[in-house]
Design a protein around this nucleic acid. Sequence first.
RNA 1: GUGAUUGUAGCUCAGCUGGUUAGAGCACUGGUUUGUGGUGCCGGGGGUCGUGGGUUCGAGUCCCAUCAGUCACCCCA
Length: 449
Amino acid sequence: MSNTKPILPKGMRDFTSEVMFRRNYIFETVKSAFERYGYAPIETPAMENIGTLTGKYGDEGDRLIFKILNSGDYLSKTDLNDSTTSKSLTKQIVEKALRYDLTVPFARFVVQNRNEITFPFKRYQMQNVWRADRPQKGRYREFYQCDADVIGTDSLLCEVELVQLYDDVCSQLKIPNVDICINNRKVLSGMVELMGATDLFEDVVITLDKLNAIGLEKVKEELLEKGVKSESLSILDTFLNTKTVSDLSSLLEQSEIGKKGLEELQFVIDNVTKLGLQSANLVFDITLARGLNYYTGCILEVKANDVKIGSIGGGGRYDDLTSNFGLKDVSGVGISFGIDRIYLVMEELGLFPNNIDVSTKVMFANFGFDEAAFCLPLLKQLRAAGISSELYPINAKMKKQMTYANNKGVKFVIMVGEDEMESGILSVKNMESGEQSNLSIADLIKQLS
RNA sequence: GUGAUUGUAGCUCAGCUGGUUAGAGCACUGGUUUGUGGUGCCGGGGGUCGUGGGUUCGAGUCCCAUCAGUCACCCCA
């Protein structure tokens, strides 16, 4: 008999019940916030055709897409020769892939279901995504994203709303010291245009994004390496020296796209400021870029400053994502919450309430066949009253039954033996205080509901 | 794809410059009142020391290779 080792593939995780109670707490908080803001749920499948995904995330993104090998005798359909490479072979034997994020499948969904959808369409989606990345802290190969998007309008009020949504959720979860960083891709385009490096936009922007991590000097070195002219760097300096959005207006005077971006940025910041945030800070950050290719306007990223981890959420506006699937002129904007990272932040800061990990509230101890039979209708009544309860399945030793109840966090253990069966009065033990009381089932239900 | 680091019981680890039958805590299990847990006491099971070579009279300990995990870079939630 072969004995398979019980191990998981790299970057994949099991979740114990204890963890799931906590994860669900986050999920519920995010979900109810989404619904409070008028977003409706959808789901898309784990798999997409590979063409749906490639080319949407940048080169690095494409590399990290998990591909699914075709079924059947795929070898007989391949054309192998001397010039065959892994990459060219992949195209012949792979037609499907696991989704890399929720936004691109959503764009596909919108185009495919455009006749069923009323625009502007506000949807939320909470599903797992997969990336063939090297795992490390806060980075997994399978993780959950919770997205809210509005598609079918270019109104900047959506951006304002999404910033509030971020603030709302972080406040409810009581995550302290949260920065919601904001920037605009058009502002970056304007800057890169003035630097005379429009062709290198992606490179410049990705390098710039590392400023906090590697410092200005390294950034400049890297930009020069990538082909940016040295005289352009002084222009970069003037941009980096801006503290507020209004400082940018004179700098971007010469760039149409830059001016447009600035206007957008100003609108969002002004409105958010006017409304006020509960606990998070809205921070303008000229270095915020985001690597995903499809962003075109406002970009957002959320950081929990008290924990050393990547961002716990990100998002932005994409003006043309649906045109990849044949639907033009549909602008969308959305945000994503990284549940797994939020979990780590909350765990590290001890933010989980302690009463979220209880499932069974009442347990009947099992004293034997007749006694168990007596308990079944009582159990039914408790459950009908909405009280989560169970009967220990076998007549095991009391110690074992009590240990089970204790480890499971059961609040009350009910003991029904001969005396209780005769009188109908139950012995109810409070597992926290250790006190025992005698109650009828009606009184117990009254007390617990 | 690049670099660093670790690999001893189910889990967290100890094991000094290589030396007899490899340890602890937790967990599990049995007893300590055969209707009572979480705190006490006594007992028990469980390890080819990641794997494969090498050095040596002798390797958990040293050397090489290999695999796996973790962390960092790249990129990202």
